[in-house]
Structure formats: structure tokens, C-alpha cells
């Protein structure tokens, strides 16, 4: 069975840094930014282990603000 590779795109300006996506991710792909904040002053979610992403969409489903877009592709 081919492995699934995923990628997340976080709308960092919309993100409020609630952290729910981080605990929802089974592969610890996401973390809150430690250096950067958005215009509202929130530490936003970012992919710190992008290679572990399978595109399962858990992070996006639990995101209350609809900040996360997910893509998934079968590895050839």
C-alpha cells in the first residue's frame, strides 16, 4: 500500500494560536511558532515536522477558525 504524504497550509493571520490542532495531530507535525507572532499578536500554528504529515486532516477538522488547508498525495 502506497504511503500517503500530506501538507498543511496555515492561514497564519487567521490563526489564534489556540493549540487544538497540535493535540489533534497524531504525528506531532504542528507546533505553535516560538519566534513569530501574527498581526493580532498570536503565536500561530506551523508545521515543525512536515515530513510526518499524512494529510489526515485532523488538525483542520478541529480548527475552530478554519485556518488550515490540507493536501494529500499518494507516494509513487
Amino acid at each position: 500500500m502506497a504511503k500517503m504524504r500530506g501538507a498543511t497550509v496555515v492561514d497564519t493571520e487567521r490563526c489564534k494560536g489556540c493549540g487544538l490542532c497540535i493535540v489533534a495531530c497524531p504525528f506531532k507535525v504542528l507546533a505553535l511558532s516560538t519566534k513569530n507572532v501574527n498581526q493580532k499578536g498570536y503565536n500561530y500554528a506551523e508545521a515543525v515536522a512536515p515530513d510526518a504529515c499524512t494529510g489526515c486532516t485532523s488538525c483542520a477538522i478541529v480548527c475552530p477558525d478554519g485556518c488550515i488547508t490540507v493536501y494529500r498525495k499518494k507516494e509513487d
Binding site: R5, A7, G55, A60, Y71, R72, K73
Partner: peptide
């Protein structure tokens, strides 16, 4: 390569 419209699985 992954972030392509045909691979979109979730968006707002």
C-alpha cells in the same frame, strides 16, 4: 508537489 489543487483534501 503535494500542495496542488488536485490534492486538496480539506479547506474552510
Amino acid at each position: 508537489e503535494i500542495i496542488q489543487p488536485e490534492n486538496l483534501v480539506y479547506k474552510k
